[in-house]
Protein backbone atom coordinates (compact mmCIF):
# COMPACT_ATOMS: atom_id res chain seq x y z
CA UNK A 1 0.00 0.00 0.00
CA UNK A 2 1.21 3.47 -0.81
CA UNK A 3 0.72 5.83 2.09
CA UNK A 4 2.53 9.18 2.10
CA UNK A 5 0.76 10.37 5.22
CA UNK A 6 3.08 10.94 8.17
CA UNK A 7 1.74 11.46 11.69
CA UNK A 8 3.32 14.78 12.65
CA UNK A 9 5.18 17.82 11.31
CA UNK A 10 8.17 16.77 13.46
CA UNK A 11 8.42 13.40 11.69
CA UNK A 12 7.84 15.05 8.31
CA UNK A 13 10.93 17.27 8.61
CA UNK A 14 13.15 14.91 10.66
CA UNK A 15 15.69 14.20 7.90
CA UNK A 16 16.35 17.82 6.86
CA UNK A 17 20.12 18.10 7.21
CA UNK A 18 22.50 20.98 7.92
CA UNK A 19 23.35 22.91 4.76
CA UNK A 20 20.24 21.73 2.87
CA UNK A 21 18.57 23.81 0.17
CA UNK A 22 14.94 24.19 1.21
CA UNK A 23 12.12 25.71 -0.81
CA UNK A 24 9.26 27.23 1.17
CA UNK A 25 5.90 27.95 -0.48
CA UNK A 26 3.95 31.15 0.06
CA UNK A 27 3.50 34.70 -1.11
CA UNK A 28 3.55 36.73 2.05
CA UNK A 29 1.51 34.70 4.51
CA UNK A 30 -0.72 33.14 1.84
CA UNK A 31 0.48 29.56 1.45
CA UNK A 32 3.30 29.75 3.99
CA UNK A 33 3.59 26.36 5.80
CA UNK A 34 3.95 27.75 9.32
CA UNK A 35 3.56 24.43 11.15
CA UNK A 36 6.27 22.76 9.03
CA UNK A 37 8.56 25.77 9.56
CA UNK A 38 8.03 25.60 13.32
CA UNK A 39 8.81 21.87 13.22
CA UNK A 40 12.03 22.73 11.37
CA UNK A 41 12.91 25.23 14.11
CA UNK A 42 12.36 22.51 16.73
CA UNK A 43 14.44 20.11 14.62
CA UNK A 44 17.30 22.61 14.43
CA UNK A 45 18.93 21.98 11.02
CA UNK A 46 21.19 24.94 10.26
CA UNK A 47 23.21 26.61 7.48
CA UNK A 48 20.15 26.29 5.27
CA UNK A 49 19.68 28.04 1.96
CA UNK A 50 16.01 28.95 1.69
CA UNK A 51 14.20 29.73 -1.55
CA UNK A 52 10.96 31.63 -0.90
CA UNK A 53 9.36 34.72 -2.41
CA UNK A 54 9.61 36.74 0.82
CA UNK A 55 11.38 36.53 4.17
CA UNK A 56 8.43 36.23 6.54
CA UNK A 57 6.67 38.57 8.97
CA UNK A 58 7.06 39.33 12.64
CA UNK A 59 8.68 36.51 14.61
CA UNK A 60 6.78 33.42 13.44
CA UNK A 61 7.08 31.00 10.51
CA UNK A 62 9.87 31.79 8.04
CA UNK A 63 10.91 34.93 9.95
CA UNK A 64 11.32 32.82 13.11
CA UNK A 65 13.45 30.26 11.23
CA UNK A 66 15.69 33.10 10.04
CA UNK A 67 15.66 34.66 13.52
CA UNK A 68 16.75 31.34 15.01
CA UNK A 69 19.89 31.65 12.85
CA UNK A 70 19.23 28.50 10.84
CA UNK A 71 19.40 30.24 7.46
CA UNK A 72 22.68 31.35 5.90
CA UNK A 73 21.21 32.52 2.59
CA UNK A 74 17.83 33.63 1.22
CA UNK A 75 16.91 33.41 -2.46
CA UNK A 76 13.85 35.58 -3.03
CA UNK A 77 12.26 38.36 -5.09
CA UNK A 78 10.99 40.66 -2.35
CA UNK A 79 12.85 40.34 0.94
CA UNK A 80 11.05 43.11 2.79
CA UNK A 81 7.39 43.64 3.56
CA UNK A 82 5.54 45.85 6.00
CA UNK A 83 6.04 43.49 8.92
CA UNK A 84 9.40 41.97 8.07
CA UNK A 85 11.86 42.80 10.82
CA UNK A 86 14.14 39.81 11.28
CA UNK A 87 15.69 39.58 7.81
CA UNK A 88 16.39 43.33 7.44
CA UNK A 89 18.22 43.40 10.79
CA UNK A 90 20.45 40.43 9.95
CA UNK A 91 21.03 41.72 6.43
CA UNK A 92 22.13 45.14 7.67
CA UNK A 93 24.56 43.43 10.04
CA UNK A 94 25.95 41.34 7.17
CA UNK A 95 24.88 38.12 8.87
CA UNK A 96 22.73 36.65 6.09
CA UNK A 97 23.26 36.42 2.34
CA UNK A 98 20.68 37.49 -0.22
CA UNK A 99 20.28 36.41 -3.82
CA UNK A 100 17.66 38.71 -5.35
CA UNK A 101 15.76 37.15 -8.26
CA UNK A 102 12.93 38.68 -10.30
CA UNK A 103 9.72 36.93 -9.29
CA UNK A 104 8.96 35.34 -12.66
CA UNK A 105 12.56 34.23 -13.06
CA UNK A 106 12.37 32.67 -9.59
CA UNK A 107 9.20 30.76 -10.55
CA UNK A 108 10.72 29.64 -13.85
CA UNK A 109 14.05 28.58 -12.30
CA UNK A 110 12.06 26.36 -9.93
CA UNK A 111 9.82 25.09 -12.74
CA UNK A 112 12.88 24.29 -14.86
CA UNK A 113 14.47 22.48 -11.91
CA UNK A 114 11.41 20.29 -11.61
CA UNK A 115 11.16 19.75 -15.36
CA UNK A 116 14.73 18.62 -15.99
CA UNK A 117 15.74 21.79 -17.82
CA UNK A 118 19.17 22.96 -16.54
CA UNK A 119 18.94 26.57 -17.71
CA UNK A 120 16.93 28.86 -19.96
CA UNK A 121 17.08 32.25 -21.67
CA UNK A 122 14.65 34.94 -20.48
CA UNK A 123 14.05 38.57 -21.43
CA UNK A 124 13.52 39.53 -17.78
CA UNK A 125 16.26 41.65 -16.23
CA UNK A 126 18.23 42.35 -19.42
CA UNK A 127 20.06 45.72 -19.12
CA UNK A 128 19.57 45.77 -15.34
CA UNK A 129 21.96 45.08 -12.45
CA UNK A 130 20.32 41.67 -11.93
CA UNK A 131 21.69 40.44 -15.28
CA UNK A 132 25.23 41.72 -14.74
CA UNK A 133 27.88 39.08 -15.29
CA UNK A 134 25.41 36.62 -16.79
CA UNK A 135 25.64 35.10 -20.24
CA UNK A 136 23.37 36.73 -22.83
CA UNK A 137 22.31 35.68 -26.29
CA UNK A 138 20.37 37.33 -29.11
CA UNK A 139 17.35 35.56 -30.59
CA UNK A 140 15.47 37.26 -33.44
CA UNK A 141 17.18 40.55 -32.67
CA UNK A 142 16.29 40.60 -28.95
CA UNK A 143 18.73 40.02 -26.09
CA UNK A 144 18.00 37.34 -23.49
CA UNK A 145 19.86 36.39 -20.31
CA UNK A 146 20.76 32.85 -19.23
CA UNK A 147 19.25 31.78 -15.91
CA UNK A 148 19.90 28.46 -14.19
CA UNK A 149 17.40 26.01 -12.75
CA UNK A 150 17.09 25.53 -9.00
CA UNK A 151 16.61 22.12 -7.45
CA UNK A 152 16.09 21.69 -3.74
CA UNK A 153 16.84 18.99 -1.23
CA UNK A 154 13.45 19.62 0.38
CA UNK A 155 10.32 21.63 -0.41
CA UNK A 156 7.93 22.64 2.36
CA UNK A 157 4.48 23.35 0.94
CA UNK A 158 1.06 24.22 2.32
CA UNK A 159 -2.17 23.09 0.67
CA UNK A 160 -5.86 22.78 1.45
CA UNK A 161 -6.56 19.12 0.69
CA UNK A 162 -4.57 15.98 0.00
CA UNK A 163 -4.99 12.20 -0.26
CA UNK A 164 -2.58 9.42 0.71
CA UNK A 165 -1.12 9.34 -2.82
CA UNK A 166 -0.07 12.99 -2.40
CA UNK A 167 -2.56 14.51 -4.84
CA UNK A 168 -3.07 18.13 -3.81
CA UNK A 169 -5.58 20.94 -4.06
CA UNK A 170 -4.74 24.46 -2.89
CA UNK A 171 -6.72 27.42 -1.57
CA UNK A 172 -7.16 30.58 -3.66
CA UNK A 173 -4.00 32.73 -3.99
CA UNK A 174 -2.24 30.52 -1.41
CA UNK A 175 -1.42 28.23 -4.37
CA UNK A 176 1.32 30.58 -5.69
CA UNK A 177 4.73 28.79 -5.61
CA UNK A 178 3.44 25.50 -4.14
CA UNK A 179 2.88 23.50 -7.35
CA UNK A 180 6.28 24.36 -8.90
CA UNK A 181 8.15 23.81 -5.62
CA UNK A 182 6.55 20.35 -5.29
CA UNK A 183 8.17 19.34 -8.58
CA UNK A 184 11.67 20.62 -7.83
CA UNK A 185 12.80 18.86 -4.63
CA UNK A 186 14.31 15.51 -3.79
CA UNK A 187 11.78 15.31 -0.96
CA UNK A 188 8.55 17.30 -1.06
CA UNK A 189 6.85 17.68 2.31
CA UNK A 190 3.30 18.99 2.39
CA UNK A 191 0.99 20.15 5.14
CA UNK A 192 -2.68 19.78 4.27
CA UNK A 193 -5.63 21.23 6.17
CA UNK A 194 -7.71 18.22 5.15
CA UNK A 195 -6.83 14.66 4.20
CA UNK A 196 -9.42 12.77 2.17
CA UNK A 197 -9.83 9.18 0.98
CA UNK A 198 -8.57 8.20 -2.46
CA UNK A 199 -11.18 9.42 -4.94
CA UNK A 200 -12.13 12.25 -2.63
CA UNK A 201 -10.44 14.68 -5.02
CA UNK A 202 -11.92 14.87 -8.51
CA UNK A 203 -9.08 13.72 -10.83
CA UNK A 204 -9.97 16.65 -13.12
CA UNK A 205 -9.35 19.05 -10.25
CA UNK A 206 -6.03 17.73 -8.91
CA UNK A 207 -3.54 20.63 -9.04
CA UNK A 208 -0.39 18.79 -7.96
CA UNK A 209 -0.28 15.13 -9.04
CA UNK A 210 0.86 12.87 -6.21
CA UNK A 211 4.00 11.76 -8.07
CA UNK A 212 5.60 15.08 -7.04
CA UNK A 213 4.88 14.61 -3.32
CA UNK A 214 6.74 12.44 -0.81
CA UNK A 215 5.10 13.19 2.53
CA UNK A 216 1.80 14.66 3.66
CA UNK A 217 0.99 15.72 7.18
CA UNK A 218 -2.47 16.80 8.28
CA UNK A 219 -2.61 20.22 9.96
CA UNK A 220 -6.30 20.69 10.52
CA UNK A 221 -6.41 24.31 11.58
CA UNK A 222 -3.25 25.98 10.33
CA UNK A 223 -2.27 29.13 12.16
CA UNK A 224 -2.94 32.50 10.64
CA UNK A 225 0.34 34.41 10.32
CA UNK A 226 -1.15 37.91 10.34
CA UNK A 227 -3.04 37.14 13.57
CA UNK A 228 0.14 35.82 15.22
CA UNK A 229 2.06 38.91 14.04
CA UNK A 230 -0.67 41.25 15.31
CA UNK A 231 -0.45 39.52 18.70
CA UNK A 232 3.38 39.81 18.57
CA UNK A 233 3.72 36.05 19.11
CA UNK A 234 7.24 34.67 18.85
CA UNK A 235 8.30 31.14 18.01
CA UNK A 236 9.55 29.15 19.90
CA UNK A 237 6.62 30.06 22.13
Amino acid sequence: MINKIVPSPAEAVADIFDGALVMVSGFGEAGSPIELLHALIDHGAKDLTVVSNNTGSGHVGLAALIGNRQVKKMVCSFPRTTNSKVFPELFHRGEIELELVPQGTLAERIRAGGAGIPAFFTPTGVNTPLAEGKETRVFNGQTFVLEHAIRADFSLVKCRMADRYGNLVYNKTARNFGPVMCTAAEKTIVQAAKIVELGGIDPEAVVTPGIFVNRVVGVKDPMDESTLVAEDRRYPW
Partner: peptide, 14 residues
Protein backbone atom coordinates in the same frame (compact mmCIF):
# COMPACT_ATOMS: atom_id res chain seq x y z
CA UNK B 1 18.96 49.68 1.29
CA UNK B 2 17.55 46.18 0.94
CA UNK B 3 16.88 45.60 -2.74
CA UNK B 4 13.47 44.15 -3.61
CA UNK B 5 12.28 43.68 -7.17
CA UNK B 6 9.17 41.48 -7.08
CA UNK B 7 7.61 41.04 -10.50
CA UNK B 8 8.42 44.46 -11.98
CA UNK B 9 11.21 43.30 -14.30
CA UNK B 10 9.09 40.44 -15.64
CA UNK B 11 6.15 42.78 -16.24
CA UNK B 12 8.13 45.32 -18.27
CA UNK B 13 9.85 42.51 -20.20
CA UNK B 14 6.65 40.78 -21.23
Amino acid sequence: AIPAVGGAMDLVAG
